[in-house]
Design a protein around this nucleic acid. Structure first.
Lengths: 166, 166
DNA sequence: CTGAGACACTTGGACGTCCAACTATTTGAC
DNA sequence: GTCAAATAGTTGGACGTCCAAGTGTCTCAG
């Protein structure tokens, strides 16, 4: 994790202004900041999940199912909820199913639909994984409560502006 | 782009609290918000770059080189600057080189090192691509100037806390 | 001046993501 | 009722990312 002697985003912003793009510079800086923060976070998350032999996308799948009343959801609804492509859902369910964390179940009335249902081993694993994430990532962001709230709030506006939810 | 009738992050936060993880709930919400914002942004960025037949990582490579005095950098410094694995740099340079946007040049004194140098077609392309991004993404975030500044500021603290720069 | 360790880059493999194309099923307009 | 259109899921291919392993080069301590 090589540390740079300066903030690359400040530097980029200077370049943007120097090229006459001052109107776009703040947006560029914000976008770049999100991309970089995402890189840092995902590295930490994957590191925290590695002992459980889980990736973040599989964790998200299991956690989503664990929070459901019946522990099962149609693949299409999983995709809608996690905002990923149907092919990605197929992939994640495949891999979790191979490890017995999830099983495919046919829909009662619609034969097009397949449900993914979390198993007991799946519940157990996701519970431990959540404990790791809570301890090593979510409560160790290096930001105070106020900054975290500000961040979540601004991003909520952003997500809403881009049709994430209504 | 299916829109959900509720904010999935609010929902997740409720679940976290209901499970007795209230201390981790704000961090979870912030992390999830960044992940979602990143998803949304990358989709828009890739869409904006598609007409130029560029991906974001190749764009980043070209833009970095274009901002250099000599238009060339050792691959290792590119990796340090963009914070990506050496193998990813090799990959991006390969693909840009195939399209004549960049060329590999041996280092003058250190024979271990290879420089990537942007070509004139590379400069031309990255210039047009930047124009697209400025117009379609960076100046169209759906946030006011103040919110953008807040976002960038909080994320700067976050990045610094995680050793992104000093 | 020699050899161990650091450094720079590449390769092959695993994974997640998307898209385009395809099959199967259901819905709805006529 | 029928048939076109919409919906659900899968498959194969492209891309970017990382890791582990391997080659070549340089540095520096002894």
């Amino acid at each position: 994790m090589s540390k740079l002697p300066f903030d690359p985003i400040d530097e980029a912003q200077r370049q943007w202004v120097a090229h006459g793009w001052e109107d776009a510079a703040p947006g560029m800086a914000a976008v770049t900041s999100i991309v970089r923060a995402h890189q840092i976070l995902m590295a930490r998350v994957e590191e925290s999940l590695r002992p459980h032999d889980l990736t973040f996308s599989r964790y998200e799948l299991l956690q989503l199912l664990a929070f459901t009343r019946t522990g099962a959801l149609p693949l299409s609804r999983i995709g809608a909820r996690l905002q990923v492509h149907p092919a990605s859902v197929t992939n994640a369910v495949d891999r979790c199913e191979q490890r017995g964390l999830v099983k495919r179940v046919p829909h009662a009335t619609d034969r097009r639909t397949t449900l993914a249902e979390i198993t007991d081993p799946g519940r157990e694993l996701v519970s431990k994984a959540t404990e790791s994430l809570n301890r090593e990532v979510f409560t160790a962001l290096g930001l105070d409560e106020e900054a975290i709230g500000e961040l979540t709030g601004v991003l909520k506006h952003f997500r809403q502006a881009h049709g994430d939810f209504s």
